[in-house]
Amino acid sequence: MNDVKFLIHSGIGRITLNRPRALNSLNHDMVLAITEHLETWRSDAGVRAVLIDGAGDRGLCAGGDIRAIYEDARGGGTASLRFWADEYRLNALISRYPKPYLALMDGLVMGGGVGVSAHGSHRIVTERTRLGMPEAGIGFVPDVGGTYLLSRAPGELGTHMALTAGSITGPDAIHCGLADHFVPGERIPDLLDALASHTPDTALDLFAEAAPASGLAADADWIDHCYAADTVEEILTRLHSGGDAAATTAKEIEAKSPTSLKVTLRALRSAAAMPELETVLAQEFRVSTRALSSAEFVEGIRAQIIDKDRSPQWAPATLSEVDESLVDSYFADLGDAEWNGVTR
């Protein structure tokens, strides 16, 4: 298919997301095609490693096809549920893939882009990397295993990333456990050439460098203190009294959906106690299913992506109005509609 290209060369199975005008955003057909090739390559003696990258010069992947999800949600459809179920199965497959799985995380790596990269065995960032889980900004909650990854970042850095919906640099991603290697962008072509005749580890030894200092790590003291609180309300109270940077962060968070903020915090805390990625993905699918039918998700996409007025009208409008029973509903058991029971 044209939206994703597959090539085997010198033992490397290469996956190139090929929608540069859409920042290589993922659609359902792409997810199914990638899964099919990974399953085939698993037992193919001619493939010793897999590499995923993105076409164009703007990034690996900006996430899922949010416009398609918007139309589905607005129309009360269920196509997004089938997409998410298959996408999450792909994330799980990548996490346990038996061959080296290299992810070239250059440029933008957002949402679903994190899902097809940060679960891999060899995760490569550059000075251009901007990685984030922006879901809270559109009335949604981090998924694709994002709550699993962020809940395991040092201290409360993952909570900070999730609630602000902001992006981080390549060095930040390495510090947070979301990436492994820093390779300057100008050396990427040489790295790709080296993979033809070297193992992934040897090639990376040749071209990876010590990452620059992480700016996020430098802010860890106030981040860890503020986000260690048990509620979003207390986190905001601490941020407002934590200095200029913290107070600015509080204002960013306060612009997000109150419902999404509370659901996101609970999802992160729950994910931290779950031993396996698949268990977290099951929880994320419950949350995503509930979000698809919520007005918050539709309104968030409308304000940020469709109309771009950046003025979402959240309902409930304040944290105090978000009843715990509403938060509970996002985590309710789906019975036969659990993620592994949903088929295409």
Rank of each mutant, 00 (worst) to 15 (best):
T231G: 05
A153M: 13
D201G: 11
V31F: 00
L192Y: 06
I8Q: 10
P154W: 12
D244V: 05
P98E: 14
A162Y: 00
R310K: 12
I34G: 02
T126F: 02
V232R: 02
L326Y: 07
R67F: 13
L268S: 08
T318M: 04
P171L: 08
K262S: 08
P184K: 04
A68Q: 08
R310Q: 09
F207T: 01
A194Q: 05
S10P: 03
L178R: 11
G335I: 02
A136V: 14
E135G: 11
P134L: 09
R89N: 06
S329M: 03
M105D: 01
T289G: 02
D193H: 14
L157S: 15
T237G: 01
Y101Q: 14
S241T: 15
M161W: 05
L150K: 00
P20H: 07
L265I: 02
S95V: 09
V232T: 08
A194Y: 03
L23S: 13
M105F: 01
A246D: 02
V114N: 12
A211E: 07
V280P: 04
D29C: 11
G341W: 06
A245S: 12
R82P: 08
R128H: 06
R344W: 14
P212A: 14
I8A: 04
A165R: 07
T199G: 13
E186R: 12
W222D: 03
L108N: 03
D328E: 08
I253F: 10
E284K: 15
A103I: 00
L326T: 12
A68C: 02
G120P: 03
L216T: 04
D190M: 04
A73D: 14
S311I: 07
E276D: 15
T16A: 08
L326E: 03
I174V: 08
A247C: 12
V342T: 00
A273F: 00
Y88G: 07
T259N: 03
W314H: 05
I188Y: 00
E233I: 07
G75Y: 00
L102M: 10
V116I: 15
D224S: 11
A273R: 14
R58C: 01
V327S: 05
P20T: 10
R130E: 09
D143G: 15
A22I: 03
I305V: 15
A55G: 06
E296Y: 07
A332P: 09
E252I: 15
L236Y: 11
E71K: 07
Y97W: 11
T318R: 14
P275I: 10
P200G: 12
P212R: 14
M30F: 14
L178D: 01
D309S: 11
A210T: 09
M105H: 06
L51H: 06
G242K: 02
S10W: 00
G107P: 00
D336C: 07
T343K: 10
